[in-house]
Amino acid sequence: MAEHVILVVGPMGAGKTTAISALSDIDTIRTEAVNTERDVVDKATTTVALDYGEIELSPNEKIRLYGVPGQKRFDFMWSILKQRAVGMIVLVKNDAEDPVGDLVAFFDEFREIHERGGVVVGITHSDLAPRPTTYEYQQIVAERYPSALAPVFTVDPRSRDQLVVMLSVLAANVDSRAMFLAR
């Protein structure tokens, strides 16, 4: 069985659980708990271990999608989940207090995944906060990580079509990189 582990990472409230539900073939496995940090993000529940979904490409090949908790206090789950990942989707909430800081923090934390595979950044809530723009995010990533050419797209995490584009770009990047590295 071939498997491709892809993480969906980002701060609380960015839409990770919603995105995995929109993409998954199976009923997703969720570990949501009552959120007592309503002062930080005003949502009723939050993921405390992982979200899990699957896409079956063939009887012998699966994409396993893992959503990680957004809060730093669950970083032990990040360490566990990133070990087998070939790629990641970073979701950033554009109307957060410091969306650029959020992107940089997750990019730093999961940098090894970018180095061995692919990363795609999705900017959510850009209808509520149009800036920073995708162009501005790409400039920040390029300045901070000169070797990284991370795609940055606006995305509605409820939109399966947009998420399929993101996942497709991630897969194309993984394939392309492998093609150039092949001897």
Partner: peptide
């Protein structure tokens, strides 16, 4: 540092899943 509380929360949620 609150780490045990966070881990316990994850363990509880995973076991219930």
């Amino acid at each position: 540092d609150g780490r045990f509380a966070s881990m316990a929360s994850s363990v509880q949620a995973l076991s219930e899943a």
